[in-house]
Computed example of a mutant assay.
Amino acid sequence: MKLIYVYDALCGWCYGFSPVITEFHQNHEEELDFEVLSGGMITGSRIGPIGEVAGYISKAYKDVERATGVTFGQSFLEDILEEGSAVFTSIPPAIALTVFKQHQPGQAVAFAARLQKAIYYDGIEPVDYEAYGELAAEFGLEPSSFVAEMKQNENLQRAREEFRRASGFGVTGFPTVLLQHNGQTTVLARGYMPLPRLEAAYQQAME
């Protein structure tokens, strides 16, 4: 059995969902294989300065905080959102995840959550490759080697393949949680869901 968590590092609701999927992973890592896929929310013509969508994010982040209990950091709100020039793109954090999974696939859920905290709490810029190396170092990986791997074209292609796979599952929004069991793929969650509801959806799918 496999659980596939489709998220995007720049998805605010995925940031709110991080504590949920982290605890769900802790509860079920013995019985389920977990795979994390980046969905590619901000790619192509959507890539640009965060200032272009700051008006929307300034309202939406408060909804995420109220619904999920997570906190957006002042470093993000002031240095990134208010300042407005940071380029928002899903591609570098997706590459970081693909590189990380080649080394520590069992820690993918934790690394995805750390990526989101780095962006939405610590306030790193999504295009700051060196920052991803520092995050990898927290998991015991050598930072400069990690950054070098991120810059290899094959890992860009791996990230793009993840975007294609997510789309192939019919995922149109994030987070999405899928369960593969007995040759079938079941949607456990579309959008944010608190842990008790996710656990109930999982138990129902197993019946």
Rank of each mutant, 00 (worst) to 15 (best):
M1Y: 10
K2M: 02
L3I: 15
D8R: 13
D8Y: 01
C14D: 09
C14Q: 10
Y15H: 11
Y15F: 15
G16H: 11
G16M: 08
F17A: 04
F17S: 02
I21F: 04
I21Y: 06
H25K: 03
Q26I: 11
N27P: 03
N27Y: 05
E30R: 07
E30N: 05
E31A: 00
E31N: 08
V36M: 09
L37N: 08
L37P: 12
S38I: 06
G39L: 11
T43A: 11
R46E: 05
I47L: 04
G48S: 09
G48M: 01
V53H: 05
A54D: 01
Y56P: 00
Y56R: 09
S58E: 02
A60H: 15
Y61D: 01
R66H: 10
A67N: 13
G69Q: 07
T71Q: 11
F72G: 02
F72S: 00
F72R: 00
Q74V: 11
F76A: 00
E78Q: 08
E78R: 04
D79V: 02
D79A: 08
E82L: 00
E82C: 00
E82R: 03
S85D: 00
V87G: 01
F88N: 00
A96L: 12
L97E: 06
T98N: 12
T98A: 14
V99F: 06
V99R: 05
Q102S: 15
Q107M: 13
A110T: 02
F111K: 04
F111T: 02
K117Q: 10
K117L: 04
A118V: 03
A118N: 02
Y120Q: 06
D122G: 01
G123N: 01
G123V: 09
E125I: 01
V127G: 10
D128K: 06
Y129K: 09
Y132G: 08
G133T: 12
A136I: 04
A137G: 01
L141F: 11
E142Y: 11
F146H: 13
A148M: 07
E149W: 04
K151H: 07
Q152T: 12
N153A: 14
E154W: 07
E154V: 14
E154G: 03
N155W: 14
L156I: 09
L156G: 13
Q157G: 04
Q157K: 15
R158L: 12
R160P: 05
E161C: 03
E161Y: 14
R164F: 14
A166F: 13
T172K: 15
G173E: 15
F174H: 08
F174S: 01
P175V: 08
V177T: 14
L178V: 10
L178C: 09
Q180S: 10
H181E: 15
N182E: 15
T186D: 10
R190N: 13
G191H: 00
M193R: 13
R197V: 14
A200I: 05
A201D: 02
Y202D: 02
Q204E: 15
